[in-house]
Computed example of a mutant assay.
Amino acid sequence: AMPNVLPFPSSEEVMKDYLDLIQKEAIVHVYPFATITKNEAGQEIVDYASLKKLGIEWFSDDGVGVASKEIMKEAMLSAKENDVLFSCHTEDMNYRAPNASVHASKINEEKGWIGIPSACESEQLIRDLELVQDIGNRYHACHISAKESVKALQKAKDQGLDVSGEVTAHHLLLEDKDVQGPNWKMNPPLRSHEDRMAIIQGLESGVLDLIANDHAPHTAEEKARSMEKAPFGIVSLETSFPLLYTEFVWKQKRWTLAQLVNWMSTTPAYRFGLFDRGEIKEGKKADLILVDLEHETKIDASKFESMGKNTPFDQQKVHAQIVETYVDGQRVWKG
């Protein structure tokens, strides 16, 4: 769970409250990130050692990039010393105009929308990877959307750095030409066809390691605002697997089911140090979903468990319906 929540989990005290809440209320295993900088303000690094004592080994300022190179260097040095993983949403706000809401492209400009260029993501990623090369800390790049970012990660991996990158289902499936309104507004935005092909190939070649959700619930009222004023983000937890299976395994026959499971389950578990789960194997945690792959169904946002219904995929036909969820071998949900 990303730490862009209030109060920010930037201290031991706040994180203890979150962990108590998770213990009391969570139905599935929940692993919260702590912030890289206090309150995601980019000014002062948090005490990674004290949070690691609580079992928190993952840190992110998700939603914003750490603007200062000096602060990021200080943070990475401490991360290296404490052996914790940074998971970064890179975003250099110098490249982004106020009210920007979509990818900077001709298609979107013709609709009168203000665009976010790919450099907004890739330039800060390049900076971070140069720091990683000097410092040697562990680094994970969140929701990669631009071909320039794929190229930067390829270079870092060729140098033998301990880096990884992820893509989301929506960036694998949609492009700038698909955007119809605020339910297609997310950060990073849906980019060009060329970018989408680059991230698909990056995933298939191993430059990108895994698929994440970037699940961002918002109310219907929030998403009913204008394109400029509506918040970024869509819900994704309940749709990612059905959509990706249907498009890439069932329709295109481009991927195998095993590949998709590896990218969505096994690799993430191992990258984030959850070695007792992520695959169906004796001795591992029995955290499982049962899926009906035989019948076509429709995504119905009104039936989501999430309080957020904001999805561009409502009523889309899929050939994979999740029917049961098991946690530690116990059934916790049945459709």
Score class of each variant (00 low, 15 high):
E294N: 11
T246R: 01
I135E: 06
K151W: 03
N310K: 04
D134K: 12
V64H: 01
E110Q: 14
E204F: 03
Q321N: 14
G55C: 04
D209R: 07
A224N: 14
A224Y: 10
D214R: 06
A152G: 08
L293G: 04
Q180G: 11
M93K: 13
E166Y: 09
I322A: 12
K177W: 00
T311P: 09
T311H: 05
P3R: 05
E228T: 06
T267W: 10
V318P: 00
I45D: 00
P312N: 09
S205M: 10
M227E: 10
E305T: 08
V30E: 08
M197G: 00
S302W: 02
E109R: 05
E228W: 06
H103K: 08
G136W: 04
Q201N: 14
S78H: 10
K281M: 13
E123T: 15
S78E: 15
I289A: 13
S192Y: 06
W250N: 01
N137K: 02
A34E: 04
T35Q: 02
G63S: 13
E25I: 03
A152P: 02
I22V: 13
K24Y: 05
A224L: 07
Q43W: 00
S265M: 07
K229I: 00
T35M: 08
A156N: 05
H215I: 12
D20T: 03
I144M: 13
V291D: 03
S118Q: 10
V30L: 15
D195A: 02
L190I: 11
K284I: 07
A79R: 01
I299Q: 08
L77I: 14
V66Y: 05
W113E: 08
L85I: 15
L173H: 02
H215V: 07
A100F: 05
S265W: 04
K281A: 14
E282W: 02
E13L: 13
E166F: 09
V261R: 04
E279W: 01
N94H: 07
I107Y: 12
V46W: 01
R191L: 08
Y95G: 00
F304Y: 09
A269L: 05
D214N: 11
H143I: 01
K157N: 06
V323R: 12
T311A: 11
A230H: 04
E91Q: 11
L6Q: 11
E70K: 09
A286H: 12
E110Y: 04
R196S: 04
I45E: 01
M2R: 00
G42Q: 07
L274M: 13
K73Q: 12
P242E: 07
G273R: 06
V102C: 10
M76Y: 04
G112Q: 10
S145C: 03
I45H: 01
I114K: 14
A156C: 07
K309G: 05
I280M: 13
L6Y: 13
E221T: 13
N137Y: 00
P182C: 13
L125A: 10
A41Q: 15
